[in-house]
Design a binder for these strands. Structure first.
Lengths: 163, 163
DNA sequence: TATTGTTATACTCTATAACTATA
DNA sequence: TATAGTTATAGAGTATAACAATA
């Protein structure tokens, strides 16, 4: 952002009254951290005509374990109507296939060989970007950050709703 | 999550092969942490008919400092075409007003008294939820997390693009 | 009767390009 | 000529409710 965006105030370059307060917002900090890191990976998924939610679904299935729609919705942060369309689109491209399940209500899917190959290819292609961020930030801090993020989520999900 | 979602495997409850790997994804961890915390605040903005991007704009302007559209786009993680509509909607509700600027190309806005009052009201209403998360997670860890998130963003934004 | 997922619908945001106004 | 925003347009996700199928 340009410095003269704040020309109305007489503060030093890069220092604005609102900035510090704004950065104390957890949800905004999470969004901005995600935006700045995700932006570097997006071109790889774009090149494969995968939207980011589609990429999360492939990732969630990457270890080969079949998952049902409900689990995918929760892990990938996608609402059921969106997931229905996403699963259909990925299945039409031959990237995943339905798996029969004892409970016929469940829509259970797994990656096909083609889907697994596409996932592996994307991991390889984006590896340099991942390492670039990892090294600039520091592996130890990255580990701490991931642990804090997962812990925050687990604790928050267990909290009772207020009123 | 239901335990029988993983009935195909014979692993202990809550332990799935994919889970650990999936949780090592930074961008997914950021998304899920945001979803679990944001969900608790959303009802307050919903009650005021504010979308989350609109709420971020009010928040960015909350200290009274006028900001231009470009700065708002960056701080609120909103693309220019979306911001144009958001500023129009908020102005029509009398929550913000345009401020004249030396550079007539800039769309500079500030909160009106009504906008500031709505912001303050939302902060008060959501205070219990904020404290609930803060106390469950721990203030010290929350502080560490916020610092790591802001540092990660600043470092990542400065990284050169690969190729 | 409760649960899982799909369909329907309306709205918003995302994303890119083309355009206008100003510097 | 470059910059800041707006407009245009297509596409995808968000969100709620209603519905179908299964348990």
């Amino acid at each position: 952002m340009k410095a003269d965006a704040h020309a109305l105030s007489a503060l030093p370059e890069g220092v604005t009254p609102g900035k510090d307060y704004y950065e104390r917002s957890l949800t905004v900090a999470l969004l901005r951290a995600r935006e700045s890191t995700m932006r570097r990976f997006k071109r790889y998924s774009d090149a494969q005509n995968l939207t980011l939610p589609q990429w999360r679904v492939l990732r969630a299935l990457a270890d080969g374990e079949p998952l049902d729609a409900g689990t995918l919705c929760q892990r990938c942060v996608i609402l059921p109507p969106s997931l229905t369309r996403i699963l259909r689109a990925l299945a039409e491209r031959g990237l995943l296939a339905q798996v029969t399940c004892n409970d016929a209500r469940r829509h259970m899917v797994t990656l096909t060989d083609k889907g697994k190959a596409l996932f592996d290819s994307l991991v390889v292609q984006s590896e340099d970007s991942r390492r670039q961020i990892d090294e600039a930030f520091g592996q130890e801090k990255m580990q701490t950050l991931l642990d804090l993020l997962n812990e925050l989520r687990e604790i928050t999900e267990r909290l009772p709703d207020l009123d």
